[in-house]
Each structure stands twice: as structure tokens, then as C-alpha cells.
């Protein structure tokens, strides 16, 4: 068999184009968003009393619910001073739980979260805005290797004392993301694209 040297396929070099991403926050005309403060004296998330649940529509008929069983991190909460707020939350993607082991395993596979590649999801706040009654947080949600800036309302659910006088604080947030924005576009149709997330955290003062 003869081969024409001109037909030799040279090795193609794939040049990655480095994108420059603008990080400018969309500033409203109202109150200036704050810069996130240090969380040295903030609250440590109590994993036993913090929850992250999600729901997604199945076959466009009914909602399927699930949760992540391990959530950690820390936050600052100050209802009077938005600039003092901050969130740094890590979700253990390997703890996804929908009540059916086979489904959980499927969610952990490459078809969805690919948890061995991307074992955690994180959220880090970048700015806060308050119009007096509603506190809004903007931050970077990283999931499945993709980082997207999201904005979510924060409901400060309370401050109090725990056993031994420890100071506690809690918040809840409900927001919607599109899983396709995070590269999880498999089985679109059978499973809805929009995922509603409810995160409720209780923190213990450091």
C-alpha cells in the first residue's frame, strides 16, 4: 500500500482562546451594592440544621424533589447593614438525595452532576443590595465546572441563642436556575430545564 506524503495528516494544534470575562456587576440606580466583608467573626453553617432542596419538573407533569445532605461554609448576616453581609457556601454534590438510590446514582453520573469530576458546588457572594424590605444577594454559583453569576433574594429568618448561649442566625433563599446554563443539558424534555432551589441555613457565631 502506497501513501502520498502530501496526504499525511499533520497534528492539529488546538489553540484555546482565553476569554476575558467582564465582572462588572449590574448596578441599579438605587442603593449602591456593598462589597463583601470579611467573615472572620461571622457564622459557621450548622450542617445539621441547614438544608438545600431543589425541585425540577418531570415529564412536564409533576415536580420531583431532592436535596443535598451536606452543606457547609460560613456567612455574615446584618439586616441593618447590607455591606456587612457575605456568603461562602459549599455543597457536597456526592450527597444528592432524591429518596431512590438508583436515581441518586444516575444524578451522580456523567449524565448530570458527574460528582467524581465535580464533587462540590459553591456559592460565593460578591455584592448585596437592599431596598429596605428585601435584601438581594449577587454572587458566583459554581456547579458542574461552570461558574455563573446569579442574584437571589435573601430572607433573614431570625437571630437567637442556642445551648450555652451561642449566638445563632438563619436565612432562607429561593431562586431558579437553568441547569443547561451549567452544562447539564441531558434529558431535556423528560426533565425540565428550570430548577428551583431553596436553601435554608442556620449558623453558629464563630
Amino acid at each position: 500500500m502506497r501513501y502520498c506524503p502530501l496526504c499525511v495528516v499533520g497534528a492539529s494544534i488546538l489553540v484555546a482562546t482565553a476569554g476575558v470575562f467582564g465582572m462588572g456587576a449590574m448596578l441599579g440606580a438605587g442603593e449602591k451594592p456593598s462589597v463583601v466583608q470579611s467573615m472572620d467573626d461571622g457564622y459557621t453553617i450548622d450542617g445539621g440544621h441547614s438544608f438545600l432542596t431543589f425541585r425540577v419538573k418531570h415529564n412536564n407533569v409533576a415536580y420531583a424533589y431532592g436535596r443535598f445532605n451536606k452543606i457547609s461554609g460560613s456567612f455574615n448576616l446584618d439586616k441593618d447593614n447590607p455591606s456587612a453581609n457575605a456568603f461562602d457556601i459549599t455543597i457536597d454534590a456526592t450527597t444528592v438525595d432524591t429518596g431512590i438510590t438508583n436515581r441518586d446514582d444516575h444524578l451522580k453520573s456523567q449524565d448530570f452532576f458527574s460528582v467524581k469530576e465535580f464533587p462540590t458546588a459553591t456559592f460565593k457572594s460578591t455584592s448585596f443590595k437592599s431596598d429596605g424590605s428585601v435584601l438581594t444577594c449577587t454572587g458566583d454559583l459554581t456547579m458542574h465546572g461552570v461558574t455563573k453569576t446569579i442574584t437571589a433574594p435573601i430572607d433573614i429568618t431570625g437571630f437567637g441563642e442556642g445551648r450555652g448561649g451561642t449566638r445563632l442566625a438563619g436565612f432562607e433563599s429561593k431562586f431558579v436556575i437553568k441547569r443547561s446554563d451549567f452544562g447539564m443539558n441531558y434529558m431535556q424534555g423528560p426533565l425540565g430545564d428550570e430548577v428551583t432551589i431553596i436553601v435554608s441555613c442556620e449558623g453558629v457565631k464563630k
Binding site: 497534528a11 488546538l14 484555546a16
Partner: peptide, 26 residues
């Protein structure tokens, strides 16, 4: 580019496999 997750390396594997196949001939 570059691949963000492992499954995106499969097309690259096809290209590399073809190139190695050519090298194997020559």
C-alpha cells in the same frame, strides 16, 4: 476548548486515535 469535563475529551480521543493510527502506518 479546552474540554471542561471528561466526556468532552471523547472527540479529542477520536482525533488522537486517528493520528496514532496514521503514525502506526508510517
Amino acid at each position: 476548548i479546552p474540554p471542561r469535563e471528561a466526556i468532552q475529551y471523547l472527540p479529542l480521543a477520536a482525533v488522537l486515535g486517528a493520528l496514532i493510527g496514521f503514525l502506526d502506518l508510517w
